[in-house]
Write a protein that binds this DNA or RNA. Structure first.
Length: 571
RNA sequence: GGGCCUGUAGCUCAAUUGGUUAGAGCAGAGCGCUCAUAACGCUUUGGUUGGGGGUUCGAGUCCCUCCGGGCCUACCA
């Protein structure tokens, strides 16, 4: 029994996320959270929307809404979709929460008190037409290197040369197209991460077993060029956490907000506060997860994220926590993921290419997506979504191997013995061998889940399902029924127990089907800490219900129709 | 340009970190079963581990080089 704090990278607010986003953070985090709870650990699983920054302001403007209203509405949308995918967050918060405002300002104050924040003057491009400063990538113009006329202020996408906005020929606002731009002087706060470089490196070096993806990105940032760079943590925007030094004003910083990447990770902590408030708990109830002086010293903290998020979670956020000088809990394990590609290219929000969470749930129930995405999680390299593979995977694994097993067992029993767990018959060495095999496979499954090896865990779970079919085929209760009905009863009894066992084991991956299996067997979907005992769990004579088929198959023509529909262009 | 990751059967992936004959699933072929969603089970075809060179008793694994794919490169998040 341990205490495990789990956070998923918080999804940005400006629209519905696609399946690539989902499989890179929220879905594996949910898998692990569900597993940890099933094993009896105390879990706090948190996620939230990431609401600040320029893209949120622009998306709200495009929707013709005040940004606060837009975010509130999009939070509702994302919450509903999270529920649809059965993401079991203990709380789904918002980075715009009052709790996060206070905490972000608190951290800034602590960092300033510790000499880790510096005010710097810099020159940035201001658009008079848009009435705002423009981040580099929101400035377009002609590339001085290759002549491409839609180069961005940070980099030319055509020749990949890195640019400064002032390098562009005929620069214009990417938002309005206006060329009425000027360079203005503005002051910003910088977090002096460079001073924490050695502390951060020591901390990274102490970690064992982190994915190569995680540590290599962290080391690259620590050692690249002049080493870890200081980072501006404020912006000239309206929407965000107002810059304050703790609970005091910050002279010279009026009208500015903290940079979204400064306040977003802090929301992991603030979200625990939101959770406590929502549950009518006290401050100490969330602090025991986050403060090592208040109970968090024995918490294991695991983060899930896509690879693009790694620098902020390995460096910036730890710098914030370490630099505060306060005993905040640092992450113990960072599980990072590569990208899921769609039919050979990138999922693209702007081009409407790929499948988005709302669309996915219109096509098929959550379990189909959860199973396929998790069993193909991009752990070692980018992995590809194709409709052919998706169809083959869900049809074979879910409908044929698992669904059909439940169907053949329950329907055979119903037709020969009725809808009750049959009594009588001796347990044979064949049965004992199955129990031993399942026990061994469950141990392997648990090892993979403990190590957060998602694909290996999925493969092992599938193997456990397959073992049921192998057993049934070899034991052949339909043959035994004619010569030795008692033996057939024993085989069927064990097989029905397998269905109940599968419910508990499968629940982290496919929670709805697991519930259906458990309900049919008249039990709760519990984790089999003792497999042998679990396989004798159903009392002879107990009633069960033959469930509807757990999974339908994806037909070739609907696969083709979906492929055509989601080929892109139709945003 | 620099850095990181990656390349294994037609496809998707393993391979206990240098150790026997490189393994699974899917797809293909054959057989079996008839309880079941034409499902299940058994058997089986299929590999010069991207090419070349090197180190080693031994290389998918380490080194060099070439070729291909991907990502990151710090003011998008």
């Amino acid at each position: 029994m341990a205490r495990i704090l789990i956070t998923s990278a918080i999804p940005y607010i400006n629209g519905i996320k696609h399946l690539g986003n989902l499989v890179g953070s929220q879905l594996p985090a949910d898998l692990y959270a569900r597993y940890a709870r099933a094993r009896g650990h105390e879990v706090l699983f948190l996620c939230a929307t990431d609401e600040h920054g320029t893209p949120a302001e622009l998306a709200a403007a495009k929707a013709g809404m005040p940004v606060a209203d837009y975010c509130a509405e999009m939070w509702q949308v994302q919450k509903r979709l999270s529920d649809g995918f059965r993401l079991s967050f203990d709380h789904f918060g918002r980075s715009s929460s009052p709790q996060n405002h206070r905490l972000t300002q608190h951290f800034a104050g602590r960092l300033a008190d510790n000499g880790l924040i510096e005010e710097r003057s810099e020159r940035q491009v201001y658009s008079n037409a848009d009435g705002r400063f423009l981040p580099d990538r929101y400035i377009e113009g002609t590339c001085p290197n290759c002549g491409y006329d839609r180069a961005r202020g940070d980099q030319c996408e055509n020749c990949t040369k890195q640019l400064d906005p002032t390098d562009l020929i005929e620069p214009r606002s990417a938002i309005s197209g206006s060329t009425d731009l000027e360079v203005r002087e503005t002051k910003h706060l910088y977090l002096l991460q460079s001073r924490l470089r050695d502390d951060l490196r020591d901390w990274i070096d102490r970690q064992e077993g982190w994915p190569v993806l995680t540590t290599s990105i962290a080391r690259k940032w620590l050692d690249d060029g002049d080493g870890l760079q200081d980072r501006g943590i404020t912006r000239d925007l309206d929407w965000g956490v107002p810059v304050r030094r703790g609970d005091r004003d910050w002279p010279g910083m009026e009208g500015k907000v903290f940079y979204v990447w400064f306040d977003a990770p802090i929301e992991y902590i603030a979200c625990a506060g939101e959770w406590a408030d929502a549950q009518e708990l006290s401050q100490s109830d969330w602090e025991r997860w986050w403060r090592t002086d208040k109970g968090a010293e024995n918490v294991r903290y695991v983060q899930f994220m896509g690879k693009d998020n790694v620098p902020f979670h390995t460096l910036s956020f730890p710098a914030t926590l370490l630099g505060s000088g306060e005993p905040w809990k640092l992450v113990d394990y960072i599980k990072s993921f590569n990208y899921l590609t769609y039919d050979g290219g990138q999922f693209s929000t702007s081009q409407g290419r790929g499948i988005f969470m709302d669309q996915a749930l219109e096509l098929l129930p959550a379990d189909y997506w959860r199973w396929w995405l998790l069993s193909h999680a991009p752990e070692t390299s980018d992995s590809a979504f194709t409709w052919e593979a998706f169809q083959a995977g869900v049809n074979k694994d879910l409908a044929d191997v698992l669904g059909n097993f439940v169907s053949r067992v329950t329907k055979f029993c119903r037709s020969r013995f009725g809808e009750v767990v049959p009594e009588g018959g001796e347990e044979t060495p064949e049965d004992a061998a199955l129990i031993a095999e399942i026990s061994q496979k469950v141990a392997a499954y648990q090892d993979h889940m403990d190590a957060i090896q998602v694909r290996k865990a999925a493969a092992e779970l599938r193997g456990i399902w397959v073992a049921g079919n192998e057993y049934l085929q070899a034991a052949a209760p339909w043959a035994a029924f004619k010569s030795d009905p008692a033996r057939a009863a024993a085989i069927v009894r064990l097989s029905l127990n397998l269905v109940a066992l599968y419910a508990g084991l499968s629940r982290p991956f496919i929670p709805d089907a697991a519930e259906a299996m458990a309900e049919a067997m008249g039990v709760a979907p519990e984790w089999p800490e003792d497999v042998a005992a679990a396989l004798h769990r159903l009392p002879p004579g107990a009633a069960f219900r033959t469930p509807d088929n757990l999974f339908r198959k994806v037909a070739d023509d609907e696969r083709d129709a979906w492929q055509a529909r989601f080929s892109g262009g139709a945003a």
